[in-house]
């Protein structure tokens, strides 16, 4: 019994597309089915505020800020050529700068003159618990001190003491705290990059704190 139903089902499925194609062919030509006149007002365009994605790693002469009439513009190195062979990311320069450094594919100098001087690297992770359902933030000193000096962050941007600094996304998006560099020079804040900073999953028994108004409401 079950077998038979299954068989019938298979037959019906395999016939269906044929029927569909026939129905399509039987329709009158497109022109005649056009709906009544009228058009969607420009006030109601689909994706009203969506910004178009930017072209990736354009050469200087085509990027809209370099003057193509300047001979030297054509001597400048296009980013695509400079990045050839480097590990990639889906945002920013589309280069994974941390991996590129760790794999020695890049060896930027730590001293203006002497290429042999090694950076002062400190491996200390700072966890910042977030009052939100997103994973907690881990700030790793290691990739930062590979590039930067302690004095680039301490004490002007961050007091060097756990939890001594107020941080939140509004400030970061405006270019404060982590946003001094992330979103300008280091990897930017985009939907694809959230988990780079928000990298520590919440404990299994963690629940989001409830708002006072929702706790007070007896009817919920």
């Amino acid at each position: 019994m079950k077998m038979k139903q299954f068989f019938l089902g298979v037959v019906a499925l395999s016939v269906l597309p044929v029927v569909a194609i026939q129905v399509e062919a039987a329709q009158p030509p497109l022109k005649e089915v056009k709906a009544a006149k009228g058009h969607v007002s420009t006030a109601n365009t689909f994706n009203r505020l969506l910004k178009k994605p930017m072209a990736k790693n354009l050469p200087p002469a085509e990027d809209g800020i370099h003057d193509a009439d300047n001979d030297n513009t054509h001597v400048l190195q296009p980013p695509k050529i400079a990045y050839d062979g480097l590990p990639t990311t889906p945002f920013g320069n589309y280069v994974d700068w941390v991996k590129a450094l760790d794999t020695n594919l890049l060896q930027p100098r730590y001293d203006r003159f002497d290429p042999t001087i090694e950076p002062l690297v400190m491996d200390l992770d700072i966890v910042r618990e977030v009052k939100s359902t997103v994973p907690d933030v881990v700030f790793p000193h290691k990739p930062h001190t590979q590039w930067l000096h302690c004095s680039n962050c301490h004490p002007k941007i961050f007091i060097p003491q756990r939890k001594a600094n107020v941080m939140n996304m509004s400030g970061i998006l405006l270019g404060q705290q982590c946003g001094v560099c992330h979103g300008k020079v280091a990897f930017p804040v985009t939907t694809q990059s959230c988990t780079k900073c928000h990298s520590k999953p919440k404990p299994a028994d963690w629940k989001p704190p409830q708002s006072e108004t929702s706790l007070k409401d007896p009817w919920r």
Partner: peptide
């Protein structure tokens, strides 16, 4: 070109 210079020098410089 900020990206071009960080290929050659670390931010610290």
């Amino acid at each position: 070109p900020h990206w071009y210079h960080r290929i050659r020098f670390r931010c610290k410089v």
